[in-house]
Nucleic acid binder design. Structure first.
Length: 888
DNA sequence: ACCGCCGGGTGCC
DNA sequence: ACCGCCGGGTGCC
């Protein structure tokens, strides 16, 4: 279908010079965003990791003064935030006090502030306040402070306080500092809570995990079972559970309910967690979290929502196409809006926007485009603009005239990083949809910051995996939903996260009630009217062992011997971390040798190294190393943000980080920054960027000069494929590898044996991918029966249900990556049992990888809410893995 | 009286 | 603040 090409390319041409968009100039939008949205300084960054391991040192009563001068008011038992104010002209020790709304209440009395300043500045403790009675005070009010910190800082904090003549009282038995009500609560000011006997009951990781699972499981049985038909513009019939989701989403968008934990009491609105009260009715999020399992149709449901609840609770207006090229018009409807835009301009404005912004991982972008095309009835105009690619149109006026703007997290973050050049941040959107919302679970990641500073009326998070490891991961999502007071990390932490992780009684219940009020969750096993939502066929994983030929084995052993010797040397020299990339290289070569000798071309060991290289040689070497790391398939994360690498750069000490992350490290540690992994000197001018990857597979190259030969693994595959064809010639298969070169090598025997095949890998242009997928999914006679698929091509959205067999040619480091790949065919629409065959070479690194996969599976199943490992711990785990892999 | 005491002015950091 | 504190006014009984 040719229109896709135009989607990607032609909007700029279409609009060039057509109109002047005088309204909503960029500057207006920036001033409305304020400086906050674009601040570089990150006050919340550095030692957040420690908050979970904090203990309560004790409490102290103090006073807040200067109430006269500020507007912030405080109720009895209300939580307050203590914030250092080092630039106060009267006292460099100043500590200001804000209420939950962020309005300043006053200052901590100076003698006490003098004691607190050092503690707070050196991050020895977190100091939190609750005002026991503050409603009527005019000049001063008391504050009950709790001191939280790591065990090892306790003495320092006590000393510091003692120096100024203060002494902590032991922690109160009643958990007022957890916001669970306290002895101060009178009947008037809140519900009474029975006081827990102990301040905190620590649950084991396992208990927490199971509690947490229940948290989502329990969401299923409630009243979210109303159904709603999609509007006429939805060109597809919805399944019952999708109609339920639609009804729920529409009701959420049009709801006027109070947000969770708010109550109306004598003309005020009370937050029962913080005891904060306001006159104005707090806004609930017009949206929520759709946490359906993969394959239940979140995309379709969201499209139905956009079309059905288009504006003012009404569907997308009908604009029947009368011209005889109606079909064409719909197809190019992406840009067909000129005529309607003229009239629409009065209807839609900054206050009443029309545009839904959808942010998704690149891997599912084409899926969204497909589904918009498939599910939007031909008679309706829906302007969809794909904000992607270097020629993306950055005119906010044009973007805000679309019905839908589709973009990726990376594009959003990239634009945001350029500060002055993010049109997406200049627009107030009708609706923002975050697909694969857990992408933003790391609060410090650039993408998260970029997402959190977007403006919108309605906000949705789509995710199949609502919580991956801990409550912590939820904050970004909740913050995105703009639920007060959780947008501020302190209140989230004090009212939800800490009670849950400390096992404070009722903490989980509280979290559950929060989740429940904003989430719709169904699993593949959920039922509608007694029937399972979807009945998936069975899925079986078989492991087929492959024995190398004598020749292959010899090559393998010699490379292994050499690599093992080198790695041993690194261990004895203690330079493992410095040679991390080299070690990955060794393992990569071994894994490649298991597949095919031709994959392993770059035997030129890079650890010749060192000595007196020219700067250019050094740069080249670093680039080579970085590419090695990126292409090693070892799923490298940035050790700063713990996410997969965005804009990777390599340090002189050969460690790879996200560019924004490592810049932030250097900025915050100036003048002398050091590498987070090995503590070597770190300088911006030494960082080497990854040249725009033409092809990240390190074993790339068109080795046509080599004569084609087979390998044990290829033989095993071909044998299986031919047997399968005898059984049933229409059965479709995925042949999956992490090495695209391997896929290329496999093409040869496929052709020779007369198989019709297609191919999908990460290097292919979007258009080509879509073609390959459609071609493969086709049931027409003569359509390809085999797809050569690179493991990570396409994300969760990729739908390859035509295949019922999968041949995994080489194991991945991360079992989750494999599972995700299998789910591309084992999902809604699969008619047959799915059989997966994993080829594993006997007595090789691959067998060891299986062991590591099992370990990871156990880890993933058991560990929840345990402390997030530090950067160096992650590396240490990797090093242990390396040892296991090469039998050291 | 280099004190006490009185009462007005005044008030965060 | 229906306080504390400051500093000026004042001064036997």
């Amino acid at each position: 279908m040719s229109w896709r090409g135009s989607v990607w390319g032609c909007l700029p041409n279409f609009y060039t010079g057509e109109r002047n968009y005088s309204h909503n100039s960029p500057s207006e939008f920036y001033s409305s965003l304020g400086s906050e949205g674009f601040s570089i300084g990150d006050t919340s960054g550095t030692d957040e990791e420690d908050t979970d391991s904090a203990i309560l040192y004790g409490t102290l009563r103090g006073s807040i003064v200067g109430l006269r001068y500020y507007t912030g008011v405080v109720n009895n038992n209300e939580m307050v935030a203590l914030q250092r104010e080092p630039n106060n002209p009267y006292d460099k020790n100043a500590v200001k006090v804000n209420n939950v709304n962020g309005d300043q209440v006053g200052h901590i009395k100076k003698e006490l502030a003098a004691a607190l300043a050092g503690i707070m500045d050196n991050k020895l403790a977190v100091v939190e306040g609750v005002v026991p009675y503050g409603a009527k005070n005019v000049f001063t009010m008391p504050v009950q402070m709790s001191f939280w910190g790591r065990e090892e800082n306790k003495e320092a904090v006590l000393d510091q306080l003692k120096m100024h003549g203060f002494k902590l009282a032991p922690p109160l038995k009643v958990g007022s500092e957890y916001g669970f009500g306290s002895k101060w609560i009178s009947g008037k000011n809140g519900p009474t809570y029975s006081a827990p006997v102990h301040a905190a009951v620590h649950l084991t990781a396992e208990q927490l995990k199971s509690e947490f699972d229940k948290l989502f499981e329990d969401l299923k049985e409630d009243d979210k079972t109303c159904e709603m038909e999609g509007a006429e513009a939805v060109g597809t019939l919805l399944l019952p559970h999708q109609k339920q989701a639609l009804a729920w989403m529409v009701s959420r968008e049009n709801s006027n309910d109070l947000p969770p934990f708010w109550e109306e009491r004598n003309n005020f609105y009370y937050n029962i967690l913080t005891n904060f009260a306001v006159k104005e009715r707090p806004k609930n999020v017009l949206g929520g979290i759709l946490a359906d399992d993969m394959g239940l149709g979140k995309t379709l449901t969201t499209i139905a929502l956009i079309l059905t609840n288009f504006q003012d609770g009404k569907p997308l207006p009908v604009e029947k196409i009368t011209s005889d090229n109606g079909l064409l018009l719909n197809v190019t409807s992406v840009f067909s809006g000129t005529a309607s835009i003229q009239s629409a301009e009065k209807k839609y404005s900054e206050d009443n926007p029309r545009t839904t912004l959808i942010i998704c991982p690149l891997s599912v972008l084409s899926n969204w485009i497909d589904q918009f095309e498939q599910h939007t009835s031909q008679d309706f105009h829906l302007n969809v603009y794909i904000y992607y690619g270097s020629d993306r149109n950055k005119d906010p006026a044009i973007l805000s005239d679309q019905d839908v703007v589709l973009t990726t997290y990376n594009i959003l973050a990239t634009d945001y990083g350029i500060r002055d050049d993010s049109p997406l941040h200049k627009i107030k959107w009708l609706r923002i949809v975050l697909d694969e919302g857990h992408t933003i679970r790391n609060p410090n990641a650039q993408q998260t910051k970029a997402v959190l500073s977007l403006e919108a009326h309605r906000r949705w998070v789509l995710t199949g995996t609502p919580i991956q490891n801990s409550v912590k991961d939820l904050w970004s999502l909740i913050s995105f939903l703009k639920l007060k007071p959780f947008t501020d990390r302190e209140w989230w932490h004090r009212t939800i996260q800490r009670p849950v992780t400390m096992g404070t009684p009722g903490g989980l219940r509280r979290l559950q009630s929060l989740i429940k009020s904003i989430t719709l969750r169904r699993t593949k096993t959920s039922k509608v009217k007694g029937k399972p939502i979807l009945e998936l066929p069975e899925r079986k994983v078989l492991i087929q062992h492959v024995t190398l030929t004598e020749e292959e084995r010899q090559v393998y052993q010699s490379v292994k011997k050499e690599g093992k010797a080198a790695i041993n040397r690194f261990f004895s020299e203690g330079t493992v971390l410095a040679h991390y990339a080299d070690i990955l290289g060794v393992l990569l070569r071994l894994r490649q040798l298991c597949c095919h000798p031709h994959l392993c071309t770059n035997t030129s060991s890079s650890f010749s190294a060192a000595g007196n290289n020219t700067p250019e040689e050094l740069r080249q070497m670093l680039v080579t190393k970085m590419k090695l790391v990126l292409s090693s398939g070892s799923d490298e994360e940035c050790a700063v943000c713990l996410e997969s690498l965005t804009l990777p750069v390599i340090t002189h000490c050969a460690h790879v980080f996200c560019k924004p992350c490592i810049y932030e490290v250097i900025r915050s540690e100036q003048p002398n920054a050091s590498c987070p992994l090995c503590r070597n000197e770190l300088r911006v001018e030494h960082l080497v960027e990854c040249p725009l990857e033409e092809e990240l597979d390190s074993s790339n190259g068109k080795k046509d000069d080599q004569e084609w030969i087979s390998s044990s693994k290829i033989n095993a595959l071909m044998h299986a494929l031919i047997e399968l064809r005898k059984e049933n010639p229409t059965t479709k298969c995925l042949v999956v590898s992490q090495f695209t070169t391997f896929l290329s090598l496999i093409e040869n025997p496929l052709k020779k044996s007369g198989f019709a095949f297609t191919r999908l890998d990460g290097s292919m242009a979007q258009k080509k991918r879509v073609e390959a997928i459609q071609c493969f999914q086709s049931s027409q006679a003569g359509s390809p029966t085999i797809m050569l698929l690179s493991l990570k091509a396409g994300g969760v959205g990729l739908n390859l249900t035509a295949a019922s067999r999968v041949f995994l040619m080489d194991p991945a480091w991360n079992p989750a990556a494999e599972d995700q790949c299998f789910d591309r065919c084992h999902r809604l629409g699969q008619k047959y049992n799915v059989i997966i065959t994993k080829f594993i070479v006997k007595d090789s690194v691959e067998e060891n990888m299986l062991k590591i996969q099992n370990k990871k599976r156990e880890l993933a199943a058991g560990a929840f809410a345990t402390k997030k490992p530090s950067a160096s711990e992650i590396k240490q785990t990797k090093i242990n893995e390396i040892k296991a892999l090469i039998d050291l």
